Amino acid sequence: MKELRLELKNEDGQVDTFVQDFIPMKRLLEWYENQSLIEEGEIKPGVDVIVKKIEFVASLFDDERVTPERILSGLDSRQFEEKIHGLINQVVLGETDPKETGKLSQHKKY
């Protein structure tokens, strides 16, 4: 399996790279629970869904420096689709091709 990689700018403008090589099965179940809550309307489309996605991605990394706040301040907003959806797809669908991971699965795009 390919490792998950997330690059975030720090306060000094330098890029920190975070790598995760093991994702517990419980993370996949958490994502499916989030999807159910979105479909049921308990998590509202828009900002709430974006926040849930960022929280989920942060939870994938064991490194305590990867937090939702760190992602919000260290990820260029123009990379949201590619990076956040890409990491989610790597976990949910097992996709590892960067061209394939830029978009969240067509059957569950929120």
Rank of each mutant, 00 (worst) to 15 (best):
E11L: 06
R78D: 13
V15T: 13
I38K: 02
I38Y: 10
H107T: 09
P24I: 11
D63W: 05
D62Y: 02
L37P: 00
T17I: 07
I84M: 03
D12A: 14
E40W: 06
I43W: 00
D21E: 15
L37H: 08
I23V: 15
K26I: 06
D16S: 15
T101K: 12
S105N: 13
T17C: 05
D48G: 02
D63I: 07
G102E: 15
P24R: 10
L87Y: 03
D97M: 00
K83D: 05
V19H: 10
S77W: 13
L104T: 05
T96V: 08
V49P: 02
Q79F: 03
N10M: 03
S59A: 10
V57H: 02
G102C: 07
V91I: 09
K2F: 15
I84E: 01
Q106P: 01
D97W: 00
L75P: 00
R65I: 02
N10W: 02
N89E: 15
L6P: 03
V92Y: 12
G102P: 07
Q35P: 00
K109H: 10
L37A: 14
M25R: 15
G13I: 04
F61Y: 09
D62E: 10
L93K: 06
F80Q: 03
Y110P: 06
V49R: 04
V19T: 15
S105D: 13
F22A: 11
S73E: 15
L87C: 08
V49F: 12
E42C: 05
A58T: 04
N89L: 04
D76M: 02
M1I: 09
Y32I: 04
H85F: 14
E82M: 12
W31A: 05
Q90I: 04
K9P: 02
L104G: 02
